Amino acid sequence: MESALRTLIIDTDPGLDDAHALAMALTPSPKRPAARVDAICTVAGNVGIDAVTANARWLLGAFGEEAARVPVHRGAAGPLAGAWVGAADIHGADGLGEMTRWPVTEVTEHALPAALALVEAARRDPGGITLVALGPLTNIALALRLEPKLPDLLARVVVMGGAVYGRGNLTLNAEFNFGADPAAADLVLAHFPDLTLLTWEATLDHAFTREDFDSFFTGDSPAATSLRHLVDNRYLTDPGYGKRSAYWRADPLAMAVALDPSVVTRAARHRVYVGYGPGSAAHGVTAVDWRDLCSDRPPVTIVQELDHPRLLDLLRI
């Protein structure tokens, strides 16, 4: 395990599995590399920008005093182009399964917008920040337009997004984060050479049993307690959820890759494109230059296999 302390900026749209990913970065564990979270940036995705920003503020407050010191920056309320799409059918109207929340000292929303916050942090600490993007890539695309040197200023970018084999979860062949803002996704993939992509197919290929899943939230930290309430509420409000034969954790897998790159046991480097065309079958589709025929953008690292036992350690709160 690498001992260097990673500085993270997390761009997110909480989101049930986003909550788990945030807890991984914000909760110390002897089996998980420590990280310093510089900022949380929110983006409209699973639900609208007001709800995801409120969720981030509440989650940080619920996760304890250290987490509550992390600033929250409100980001984009919709995609670069086209209509906003959400996932309230999965995450509930409020994004956290409409669980009854207990009072916490919520983090105050910072006045600086997310894209500007990302640019300022990267300029302040060039080469020192890992960006973890768990939602649509709108904020990162906007930050890139504000600061074209952003790819050189960040140490690394880890993105949860894409369906490189066409196994979509938003449409037949588009993954949600890329389908929610394909123009932003394509722009980011065209400019960041040190980008690692944790796809929807990689998520599907690394399923967890019910026993594994429940073991993630058995700790005694405030974050573990909060996540147990979220999961118990999901079991209560969606009886079929507790009867699944497998459980998937997209955003936590991306966070695992960000915290411990050695968890990746197989990956490929190719150029990746995202289609745009509202109403068409190409909208949000991830296209990979598997034969390396193109040269108009840098290749990115596509995660294909992860160390499953190591994942269990990384995902336990």
Rank of each mutant, 00 (worst) to 15 (best):
F63I: 00
F63H: 06
F63M: 08
G64W: 08
E65W: 00
E65P: 11
E66K: 11
E66I: 04
A68C: 07
V70D: 08
P71N: 06
V72P: 01
V72N: 01
R74T: 05
G75W: 09
G75K: 06
A76R: 06
A77N: 07
G78H: 04
P79M: 07
P79R: 02
L80C: 09
A81N: 11
A81Y: 12
A81F: 13
A81Q: 15
G82M: 09
G82D: 10
A83N: 12
W84K: 00
V85D: 05
G86I: 08
G86L: 04
D89F: 07
I90C: 02
H91E: 10
H91G: 07
G92V: 09
L96W: 12
E98R: 15
M99N: 03
M99D: 06
T100Q: 15
R101A: 13
W102C: 04
T105N: 09
E106K: 09
E106W: 01
E106Y: 04
E106F: 01
V107G: 11
V107R: 06
T108P: 03
T108H: 12
E109C: 00
L112H: 02
L112S: 04
L112N: 08
A114Y: 10
A114F: 03
A115M: 06
A115K: 01
L116K: 08
A117E: 01
L118E: 03
L118D: 01
L118A: 00
L118R: 01
A121T: 13
A121Q: 14
A122Y: 09
A122T: 11
R123M: 13
R123P: 06
R124Y: 03
D125F: 10
D125P: 08
P126F: 03
P126A: 13
